[in-house]
């Protein structure tokens, strides 16, 4: 398996739990010895040149690895010293990073008092202490509330704009969509697709047209009207009055559907055309949705 990340871009590694994302990241960051085979990152062998490799990468993990007994500033200074920077330099870098991650005010509080979002920001800043050219972000926003997630996305985007090269793993399609320049989908330990978000979406094919009827009683008439308008096969539930149909010619289909509905005097409260999401892509590629795959892998883990 070979992953290429162009300098200054983000490669999103997408896949359900148990697909091997975290294992891959742990091997590439020297935390785990590969059982067999070999791996190189930026030309460094992860086993033979582990020490050299460690000084040019940064890792922000799934469970925020910050020291609860120390303050944010002390965490940063400690990591600076362990990167073998001088005392004064470590202190200066800590102040810079606190500033950059809006943690200056909380910098002298113990991290056990931090919120989830603050911990993740500190965790990320710890991986940046030595200004590594390459960053590994392993599910950086798992478990965060939406607001903190968006904050963190902006921070990561900013890092990339400043030239960082990032390998990002995630189970959130939206996250990959927002951050990744290129995406690799892995499942069961192998690559099953790769490309930009747009390319992957194109493989899932068509757009979805969703209609919400005003009168549920008009469900069967609406289905007939949709069939007449030459769209794909309508799917929906009479109980909710919501129908979805795949269309290949986007807005042209929209016009035809509206005209058919008008003629048949079917009222609708909502009509929307949506690009496929990466969730649809994942479904198309694996025959499972990300959530189902995740549930499956959790069951496996318990057995």
């Amino acid at each position: 398996m070979s992953l290429e990340v162009e300098k200054g871009t983000v490669l999103g590694l997408l896949g359900p739990n148990g697909a091997g994302k975290t294992t891959l990241v742990r091997i590439l960051t020297t935390l785990l010895m590969p059982d067999a085979g070999r791996a190189t990152v930026m030309g460094y062998d992860v086993v033979k040149q582990a020490a050299e490799l460690r000084s040019v990468i940064g890792l922000a993990g799934q469970s925020a690895a910050v020291d609860d007994y120390l303050t944010g500033r002390e965490n940063l200074e400690m990591v600076g010293r362990l990167y073998r920077m001088g005392r004064r330099e470590s202190r200066k870098r800590a102040a810079e990073l606190l500033e950059q991650f809006s943690l200056t005010e909380a910098g002298d509080r113990r991290t056990s008092t931090y919120s989830g979002g603050m911990r993740r920001r500190l965790d990320l800043s710890l991986s940046l202490v030595a200004k590594p050219p390459t960053l590994f972000l392993d599910e950086p926003t798992t478990g965060l509330d939406p607001r903190s997630r968006i904050d963190l996305w902006n921070v990561i985007r900013g890092l990339v704009d400043d030239g960082a090269t990032v390998l990002l793993t995630t189970q959130y399609m939206e996250e990959a969509d927002r951050l990744a320049d290129n995406i690799v989908v892995i499942d069961l330990g192998g690559i099953i697709a790769q490309g930009t978000a747009a390319e992957l979406k194109a493989t899932a094919g068509n757009e979805n047209l969703t209609i919400q009827l005003v009168h549920r009683s008009q469900f069967s008439e609406a289905v007939e009207a949709l069939e007449r308008s030459g769209c794909g096969r309508p799917q929906g539930e009479p109980e909710t009055g919501r129908i979805t149909v795949m269309v290949s010619d986007g807005s042209a289909a929209l016009g035809r559907v509206v005209r058919e509905f008008d003629t048949a005097s079917i009222q609708f409260s909502d009509l929307s055309l949506k690009e496929p999401t990466l969730d649809d892509v994942f479904l198309a590629l694996t025959g499972r949705t990300a959530e189902i795959a995740e549930a499956e892998s959790q069951v496996d883990a318990q057995v």
């Binding site: 960051t29 020297t30 935390l31 020490a51 460690r54 000084s55 990468i57 940064g58 890792l59 993990g61 469970s63 925020a64 690895a65 910050v66 020291d67 609860d68 990591v79 362990l82 990167y83 073998r84 710890l126």
Partner: peptide
Amino acid sequence: QKGMIDRYKSLPMARLA
């Protein structure tokens, strides 16, 4: 257990420390 060890292990520090 707390995962702090992953941080240490990803740093170019002496293992013994």
